[in-house]
Amino acid sequence: MSDLILGIGDFGASRDPAASIKTYALGSCIAVVLLDPSTRTVGMIHFALPDSSVNGRKAQDKPGYFADSGIPLLIREMSRVSGNGNSSRWVAKLVGGAAVMKCEDNFNIGKRNIMAAKKILWEKGIKPVAEDVGGNYSRTVTVPVGTGEVIISCPGRGQWKI
């Protein structure tokens, strides 16, 4: 069993039923979780910002940092690990994109991240079936590959699934 712990800008996929994929304290960042029910493969990315055009160098060094450069790479990694390039039956779940209270749009990176993730998934034909996004709390996400359950936890709020 080799668990995948993803930091900011990391992505990965696994079809080891004994493994889990986990990322900590999303804040305004987003975790996009992809599930391929036919091969029981799970993939996840933890991205921080919507648009890589703000810094081309960073986009090259760490493409997973941005929604537009990272999500396509996650899809490619899912195809590689699952051996199934047909993503039309994959499903997505979105977690994160929080903000502080009374946060106006200009400062709301979380809201911009949510919109970017949904737009890219829509363009790729992958449907988000569940989400726990926005709000004023920072989420940790764990996905046991064997069950594909997306487990969310947060200090002071306990643990729940989507």
Partner: peptide, 11 residues
């Protein structure tokens, strides 16, 4: 927002 809060009071 970057996920470096101090637990339950974060955000």
């Amino acid at each position: 927002m970057a996920g470096y809060g101090t637990g339950s009071d974060s955000l």
